[in-house]
């Protein structure tokens, strides 16, 4: 583990948790469904960053790029489907408020 990569890793270890915290906080506390998806998107970006970092540190950038490409494709589909569901929820409740999708209790 060269001194230079250790320093870089040290840097990422500081910033990555921050992005994760921001993402989770947004997903949990927001009331607007679309903003929840934004939070999800932030988390995905953080993970993409981790993969890229892993690839760089171990010199396997080609491999990590392949993984990132697949990841992005899949995330796009997930977000698209999620957006579709949110759209339909909006058609029903005529509002994007998250509080009206907690009716299923017990």
């Amino acid at each position: 583990m060269t001194q230079e990569t250790a320093q870089l890793l040290r840097l990422y270890i500081v910033f990555l948790p921050l992005i994760f915290v921001a993402g989770f906080y947004c997903v949990i506390t927001t009331r607007n469904l679309i903003r929840t998806l934004l939070g999800l998107e932030i988390l995905t970006k953080a993970v993409t960053l981790m993969l890229a970092l892993a690839g760089y540190l171990t010199g396997r950038t080609a491999m990590s790029q392949a993984l990132i490409i697949t990841l992005i494709v899949i995330e796009v589909v997930v977000i698209a489907v999620a957006a579709g569901v949110v759209l339909n929820i909006f058609r029903h409740n005529n509002s994007l408020d998250a509080r009206n999708i907690r009716s299923l209790k017990g």
């Binding site: 890229a52 690839g55 760089y56 950038t61 990590s64 790029q65 990132i68």
Partner: peptide
């Protein structure tokens, strides 16, 4: 780009 993953 900095992490040498240009295509991604």
């Amino acid at each position: 780009f900095r992490l040498k993953a240009p295509i991604a």
